[in-house]
Write a protein that binds this DNA or RNA. Sequence first.
DNA 1: CTACGATGACTCCTCAGACAAGTTGAGGAG
DNA 2: CTCCTCAACTTGTCTGAGGAGTCATCGTAG
Lengths: 221, 221
Amino acid sequence: MQDVRRYPLASQAADVLLDRIRAGRWSLGEKLPGETTLATELGVGRSTVREAVRELAGKGVLSSRQGAGVFVTALDVAEDWNDVLARVSVVAVLEARIALESESAALAARRRTAADLRVLRRTLAARAPARRSTEAHVDADLAFHRAVVAAAHNELLSELFDGFVPRVRPAMVGLLTERSLPAGPDHAAHEDLLAAIVAGDADRAATVSRTHLDDLVEWLS
Amino acid sequence: MQDVRRYPLASQAADVLLDRIRAGRWSLGEKLPGETTLATELGVGRSTVREAVRELAGKGVLSSRQGAGVFVTALDVAEDWNDVLARVSVVAVLEARIALESESAALAARRRTAADLRVLRRTLAARAPARRSTEAHVDADLAFHRAVVAAAHNELLSELFDGFVPRVRPAMVGLLTERSLPAGPDHAAHEDLLAAIVAGDADRAATVSRTHLDDLVEWLS
DNA sequence: CTACGATGACTCCTCAGACAAGTTGAGGAG
DNA sequence: CTCCTCAACTTGTCTGAGGAGTCATCGTAG
């Protein structure tokens, strides 16, 4: 007995509609045929068509207005961030982190407020005790890095960092359980980074952040 | 007459269910009550519940298996990239581009292949004739920048850049129609960038890319 | 006692029909 | 020409029915 997952008709209909949209059968903002027309055309009941439309509406591809019709709001499904992150290697994510965090460190050195410095000092202090579990250590480390990015006061950079975390965290936890990172230099790098941000030295902050993450990449390769 | 958009019951039901999931009423992988139960509980018909479930299934939050039930597959909806990009300022996006592209330029200088260099030369040549329409000029410019990122051979960086384009392109077109960018130095910067990548000089490639985009930020502020 | 097959309750899936509610465009009144 | 009415068409919602898949329980054979 094969483990063939039998797709519901409604999902099949949604796939057919999405393929037609991708193929350019209807352009952006155009109205689809009525539900009854689609039903006979696809050879399914009207409720099934409605569920297919709902499914695509959930994906943001279609939008229906009572009395008016169903309209195309996107020509394709926005690829899920998590899918992309799951596909690429950890090294690729770390390279993106280097790009993101070194720039954030430079911006943070220029823009950090008193509140930012408080958060940075607190998260750095929480990072120090390496006695705890591996997960707690990784979380504390990520919290500090997150605080650096937040101090750059750029919402997009913060969102991107947050998007990376679910991919980076399990990988870090897994690697650190196998072999431990030299704690001394690692912690010193974080203190240097904070000092550079406090001093407002953007170039040095970027350099410290970069070399720190470079070491991380080299360590795990 | 207010333009109050009357939400369909099915969407309202989907919102209620999503709120309950967010509130932790059901944990990950847990089974929801049956359709009939939910229908009476929410005070709507079964088909309405079904459409609500389909909508959330489209968002990846729920998954239903015939005979078994409806199960929670995610505790929240992945925030749409476009929503984030629409919310943040163009300057924020450009700052992210600086982070992304300067690092990509450095990586490209180390990793570029012969094929990459061909694409870079071709897109740079296509950029040259500034006689054409503003949109064509912006497209040619973005094509070159994209080629630089692609030469870094990091899929995540490429995906991020592609994600920025829909936000950056209209903004650039709009700004360039109002006042024109000094074409001479702008084009020279691109040639310098290509030269640095050809020479394999990572530091210089990053610097040129950064100053080029810094000038862009300064120009539009 | 254990392993296994039948069974029945429960679930989602699909269809059909009916009516409500909203939109749109054509055609008539002023 | 402008505005109003209305009829046709659209999606929204509910109900009922039957089909198909899943799972736990229970009885039976070994």
